[in-house]
């Protein structure tokens, strides 16, 4: 009786082992060198290649050899190796995408068997230089310039000047041809341009600085959305005055790092801080 239990226990114990060694219906096994460095690589490689009832991979970090077991009726070694390459690991069949390799953690950055020849890269760079120069100056630069002029007029607390500059801003905004903007700028532009025009209109409607400042809060927020997508020639500063607007605070964009508060002007010229640098 006891022996039967023992045998049964043994069978129960063995079953899962033998099952895991022969997981698949049409099981096939190959060994393939796969690049990599460390235990982290092993984890990534195995995770990429393992699939329930389809394939399993074990990678040896000393030999750099992957043992791939798979169901040959439903997949192939190549298919598994493709997944491994897409996770960042070169092998004799596939080379990982450049950006995926670049995103690997530092410790995993193995030496690649096939290096990309600099000549090829160089050639491509040259091709695109003139393109980049044209694109360097954003089409939205005039909008930004007008905005900064409005801001400067507010710093001076000069309602008439604000009116003048806001009118200029409105004109510039209305003259932007959306279809010539880059993809990202375009997305941001769509989100905010209606408000920007409306706000500049309000600011251009009178000479009351207090009123203009209240609208300037919104105008600045919308400009900020836009500016973040622009190709900038020099950094900008996203500045914050914690007092204005009943202590809720308000932001503005400036070219200078030093605070020149447009919400209070000479009253409290240097109140505020840099909240972010936009480059």
């Amino acid at each position: 009786m006891k022996s039967i239990i023992k045998i049964a226990a043994l069978i129960l114990f063995l079953l899962p082992v033998s099952a895991s060694a022969q997981q698949f219906k049409h099981s096939k096994q190959v060994t393939v060198p796969v690049s990599g460095n460390c235990d982290m690589c092993a984890a990534t490689i195995q995770k990429a290649g393992n699939a329930k009832q389809l394939s399993s991979v074990s990678w040896n970090k000393d030999t750099k050899i992957a043992t791939i077991t798979f169901d040959s009726s439903r997949t192939s070694a190549d298919a598994v190796l493709k997944k491994i390459a897409l996770a960042g690991y070169d092998n004799p069949s596939f080379r990982a995408p450049e950006d995926v390799y670049a995103a690997l953690p530092g410790c995993c950055k193995y030496e690649r068997a096939v290096a990309v020849q600099p000549a090829a890269q160089h050639h491509q760079m040259q091709d695109h230089k003139p393109h980049e120069q044209i694109q360097n100056q954003s089409l939205l630069q005039p909008v930004l310039n007008n905005y900064l002029a409005v801001k400067d007029a507010l710093v001076q607390s000069d309602g008439a000047a604000v009116q003048q500059q806001a009118t200029a801003l409105q004109k510039t905004l209305e003259g932007i041809s959306m279809s010539s903007l880059g993809e990202k700028e375009h997305m941001a532009w769509m989100k905010v341009y209606e408000q920007l025009i409306a706000e500049s209109k309000v600011m251009a409607a009178g000479k009351d600085v207090a009123k203009q400042r209240r609208v300037f809060i919104e105008l600045s927020q919308h400009m900020y959305t836009l500016v973040q997508t622009m190709e900038l020639t020099e950094p900008l500063y996203w500045q914050f005055c914690p007092m204005y607007n009943n202590g809720k605070g308000a932001n503005w964009i400036s070219k200078e790092k030093e605070i020149q508060n447009p919400y209070y002007g000479s009253q409290m010229l240097t109140c505020g801080r840099v909240a972010a640098t936009i480059e």
């Binding site: 880059g182 993809e183 990202k184 973040q228 997508t229 996203w238 914050f240 840099v274 909240a275 972010a276 640098t277 936009i278 480059e279």
Partner: peptide, 16 residues
């Protein structure tokens, strides 16, 4: 991928 691309290095402080 469109949101990651564009090459804008933004330095945001944590309050913003």
């Amino acid at each position: 991928e469109a949101m990651n691309a564009g090459g804008k290095g933004q330095q945001m402080d944590h309050s913003a």
